[in-house]
């Protein structure tokens, strides 16, 4: 599964431009699926048929944050606008890569004070001598993502785009090893989550699931002087209670807790005071879908160096396996 994660984090896929990461994931799952398709929003949807008559949707988003070029000046410097939650404070002197591999680094205008560090003070330098040379490589409207890097110790991983390629790797890993699940399982690798959970909504509309679980990363409160949050790296799978976008269905939340305890999988509760996951869009689809989120604790989210703990990652994999095999899913759907 770590190998899948490394492959997936290396894929280019800013929100709305997921074709490269789609084909990387598709290559890893196609032979294990009963059906694979993409939809109008760019979601990759794989179906694994089960013995039961219910439809379970698992969602992890393929897209990542990035930048889009808005202007090329006479000297060949590029101005850009954010794609998703990009913090200008951490962009300075970071490298970005385009779909074709073109690399650039973020420079900054002269600042009188660090407080003046706003997006409009930043530009991307791709090493072009002038406008003409720059436009041979990059055009207005092209997008770029953090330069790819993957570093692993025995216990932790530092990489770009663990948000949410970690979730994608969990879904793909599960799909590759799943024998005859209890219900039809739709593995949905969603698009455009980072710009407003857009893909998950249309995917859910098409699938009409009876129950859904999003798998995404979540923040932690375990670093020096961090915002108070009761999630720690290395303390297990995080079971979401709520965030700004959704309140997890109590049946799903309680089932995850019960399954973790039965299988002795370490877990922790998660309450996130900012952010949202695909569960937000799925639960509001059509006449409503009972939905929850399983979260992988992750530090430094939306930076080029996100960090997760391998034991947490494995705990999430184990809990996800228990979840899709559980006979009690049907009870949640029935009681809904």
């Amino acid at each position: 599964m770590i190998e899948l994660l490394e492959k997936f984090t290396a894929g280019f896929g800013p929100a709305g431009e997921e074709s490269q990461i789609t084909s990387i994931i598709r290559d890893e799952i196609e032979e294990f699926s009963d059906e694979v398709r993409t939809d109008n929003l760019g979601n990759l949807i794989a179906l694994k048929r089960g013995s039961g008559d219910k439809k379970i949707m698992l969602a992890a988003h393929m897209d990542e944050i990035g930048i889009m070029i808005t202007h090329v000046d006479d000297d060949g410097f590029l101005r850009f606008t954010p794609i998703g939650g990009v913090n200008p404070g951490i962009l300075r002197h970071k490298n970005f890569v385009f779909a074709d591999g073109t690399l650039g680094t973020v420079g900054v205008e002269k600042l009188d004070s660090i407080k003046d560090l706003k997006l409009e003070k930043l530009f991307l330098d791709i090493g072009a001598a002038d406008k003409k040379e720059a436009e041979q490589q990059v055009k207005v409207g092209d997008s770029a993502v953090y330069q790819k890097s993957f570093y692993s110790t025995s216990s932790r991983i530092i990489a770009n785009s663990l948000d949410d390629r970690a979730g994608c790797a969990l879904l793909a890993g599960l799909l590759r090893n799943l024998e005859m699940p209890a219900h039809d399982i739709y593995f949905v690798f969603t698009s455009q989550e980072e710009v407003g959970t857009r893909g998950a909504g249309t995917a859910a509309y098409g699938i009409e699931p009876d129950l859904a679980l999003a798998v995404d990363v979540t923040g932690t409160g375990d670093t020096p002087e961090a915002h108070t949050m009761d999630v720690k790296l290395g303390k297990g799978a995080a079971i979401k209670v709520m965030d700004r976008g959704s309140i997890s269905h109590p049946g799903i939340k309680n089932l995850l807790v019960k399954l973790a305890e039965q299988a002795e999988i370490p877990y922790q509760y998660e309450v996130l005071e900012f952010g949202a996951t695909d569960a937000r869009a799925i639960q509001l689809s059509r006449s409503g879908v009972p939905s929850g989120t399983l979260s992988i604790p992750c530090r430094y989210i939306h930076s080029p160096a996100e960090m997760l703990d391998i034991s947490d990652f494995k705990a999430c994999a184990g809990l996800l396996q228990e979840f899709v095999s559980s006979k009690e899913l049907k009870e949640i759907i029935k009681n809904n």
């Binding site: 857009r198 893909g199 098409g206």
Partner: peptide, 23 residues
């Protein structure tokens, strides 16, 4: 020309995510 900002939005945003998604 291209619209060189990502600020603002319009009807296309909701049309795009209607139903199973509309190009």
């Amino acid at each position: 020309q291209f619209r060189r900002t990502t600020a603002g939005g319009n009807d296309a945003g909701v049309i795009n995510i209607t139903g199973e998604g509309i190009p």
